[in-house]
């Protein structure tokens, strides 16, 4: 998978593409952890181009979400339909803040 980091004002953006599975979990976990710790409490994980996701990837997202909560920051996800369907299957949509596209997510994070 390809991990791309961007910054938009005080918002950290991680763009993931390709397969997000067990083999990629340790690296993504580490990158997100660093961003949560060093960032301004505004993190967008853009998975619009993720083609497949498994439960170990969900675990990475949960750990980032929990770390962000400790910092009272906000983690927003943008999902491809395949990611969205696994998130709904595991009922994580009741916890994660999900936006339909990067623009809406950036607007939501910028607004507060």
């Amino acid at each position: 998978m390809v991990i791309n980091e961007q910054k938009h004002d005080d918002i950290d953006i991680v763009v993931l593409s390709g397969r997000f599975v067990m083999a990629d979990a340790p690296e993504v976990r580490e990158r997100l952890k660093t961003l949560v710790e060093a960032g301004q409490g505004k993190l967008l994980v853009n998975m619009e181009s993720v083609t497949f996701i498994d439960s170990s990837a969900c675990a990475v997202l949960i750990s980032a979400f929990k770390a962000m909560q400790l910092k009272t920051g906000r983690l927003v996800l943008v999902n491809s339909p395949i990611v969205q369907s696994l998130i709904e299957l595991t009922r994580l949509h009741t916890v994660f803040e999900i936006m339909p596209n990067a623009e809406a997510a950036i607007a939501a994070l910028a607004a507060g």
Partner: peptide, 10 residues
């Protein structure tokens, strides 16, 4: 809260 053990559900 649990990060793992969603596999069998899936």
């Amino acid at each position: 809260e649990a990060e793992s053990s969603r596999g069998w559900w899936i």
